[in-house]
Simulated assay, not measured.
Amino acid sequence: MSRLPRSFATLLIIVAMILTAAALVYPVAKSAGAYRSAPVSEDQGVTQTPTGPLTAQDRDFVKRVRLAGLWEIPAGRMALAKGTSPEVKMAGQHLVQGHTDLDKAVLTAAQTLNLDVPSEPSAQQQGWLKQLDAAQGADFDEQFANILRSAHGQVFAVVAQVRASTQNSTVRDLATTANGTVLDHMNVLEGTGLVKFDKLAPLPTGSSAPSAPSASATPAPAGSPHY
């Protein structure tokens, strides 16, 4: 057999080296690509969404915002109907309007994140509504101002925590909106002049589940605490 030209032999060696390198690199590249695109394990409480990672805290926050509107809108309507002062009625109006707008935002966020959200208040929240429904006159005004201000004061810290830590842009936008709503409601509730600051519930420690006690001697109904 005649000897191959040196240039052709060199070309064959180069081609063989390229094919060998490609065979080695392809599995690594394929593995790296799969690692980047795979969702985080559900065991860690994190899922991937089009707007970023969604943690258990994020999901809990979205559901709490929905729950807030489900009981605070009726509470605000009670204040409009039963409040004995312009300040209490104004606070009621802010609650109705603020949570109506916030509820639209949370339903849009839930759809984006493919989350199921509650359709009725929690047992505890329903208990607060019954308590307010039974109160009349000045007693209603005082209970309304203190129960609602306590709830908003506790959730304010939770909203800030979620806003600062979430990596999901949908949750971050919702937390930004909720922050403005909660702050506005705290201001108008304090504007009633009825809030007893020395009896407000302390901020939660080590938990994102705030509870709001009754302003009266009657304890708040039992159940999982929700904003």
Rank of each mutant, 00 (worst) to 15 (best):
S7I: 15
S7T: 15
I13C: 06
I14R: 00
M17V: 15
I18A: 11
A22W: 08
A23F: 00
L24R: 00
V25T: 09
V25G: 04
P27G: 09
V28W: 02
V28I: 13
K30Y: 06
K30W: 03
A32P: 04
S37R: 04
V40N: 05
S41R: 01
E42W: 00
E42D: 10
G45M: 02
Q48K: 07
T51W: 07
G52W: 01
T55R: 03
A56H: 00
F61L: 10
V65K: 01
R66A: 15
G69M: 10
E72V: 13
I73G: 04
P74H: 05
G76M: 02
R77I: 04
L80N: 02
K82F: 04
T84C: 06
E87D: 12
M90T: 10
Q97I: 12
H99A: 10
L102Q: 11
V106N: 06
V106M: 07
L107P: 03
A109P: 11
L113R: 05
L113K: 05
L115V: 07
V117E: 06
V117S: 08
S119N: 09
E120F: 08
S122M: 09
A123K: 06
Q124P: 08
G127E: 04
L129F: 01
K130H: 03
Q131N: 10
Q131M: 13
D133Q: 14
A134I: 03
A134G: 05
D139W: 01
D141Q: 03
I147L: 13
L148W: 00
R149L: 10
S150A: 15
S150C: 10
A151K: 07
A151R: 07
V155T: 11
F156K: 09
A157W: 02
V158D: 03
V158E: 02
R163C: 13
A164H: 07
S165N: 12
Q167C: 06
T170N: 03
V171M: 02
D173E: 13
D173N: 12
D173K: 07
D173R: 08
L174N: 00
A175R: 01
A175F: 01
T176R: 09
T176A: 11
A178K: 04
G180V: 07
G180Y: 07
V182C: 03
V182A: 02
L183H: 04
H185N: 14
H185T: 08
M186E: 11
V188P: 03
V188M: 06
K196M: 09
K196E: 12
D198N: 13
K199I: 07
L200S: 09
S207A: 14
S208Y: 13
S211H: 13
A212V: 12
P213G: 15
P213R: 14
S214A: 15
S216N: 14
A217D: 13
T218V: 15
T218H: 06
A220C: 15
P221E: 14
P221T: 15
P225Y: 03
H226M: 12
H226S: 14
